[in-house]
Write a protein that binds this DNA or RNA. Structure first.
Length: 152
DNA sequence: GCCAACGTTGGC
DNA sequence: GCCAACGTTGGC
């Protein structure tokens, strides 16, 4: 059982979109480190859902891995924005798991909150220049942030 | 919209 | 395989 943080721009795909769709394939990640994290995810793992490039930025809910990583079909779509000409169905480069909606927080746990909180010292997302869109999170940090968000 | 951080690409 | 140039992310 591992814990993660996944970033999404709410204009592209928000926690409300996940709530509506119930399940989504986490397609379009084109960063090797993020992909490696996606491939390391196991069924039942939980992820903090983070809204980036919005005001305020922060964790807005929780998602659960329901299907482990399979080849991301968008890499083969020659007309799509995620097409990768170096990838083939025989040797796919990019993989994505499916996430299910778990909950939306009563209140957002903002990046500012996380940076200030001594209990969250060392959390990747609050580190300067942390661009990685799929990050591991410790169990302690996960549960602490979830408690902050759900208590409202 | 700016720009720091940092990943990727490609020439050598 | 180094590294400069370039592109992207994402907070502000």
């Amino acid at each position: 059982m591992n814990y993660w943080l996944i970033k999404s721009e709410p204009d592209a795909f928000s926690i409300d979109d996940l709530k509506r769709d119930k399940i989504t394939s986490w397609e379009g990640v084109r960063n090797y480190q993020a992909r490696n994290n996606l491939r390391a995810m196991e069924k039942g793992d939980l992820a903090l859902f983070y809204h980036s490039s919005t005001n305020p930025t922060g964790v807005v809910g929780v998602a659960k891995v329901v299907v482990t990583a399979l080849p991301d079909k968008t890499q083969f779509d020659t007309k799509g924005e995620y097409y990768d000409k170096k990838s083939t169905p025989e040797k796919p480069i990019w993989y994505c798991p499916d996430f299910a909606f778990v909950e939306k927080f009563k209140s957002i746990v903002t990046l500012e909150d996380m940076k200030k909180d001594k209990k969250l010292a060392g959390i990747l997302v609050a580190q300067r220049g942390s661009r990685l869109s799929v990050q591991p999170v410790s169990k302690e940090h996960f549960e602490y942030i979830r408690a902050l968000g759900t208590k409202g």
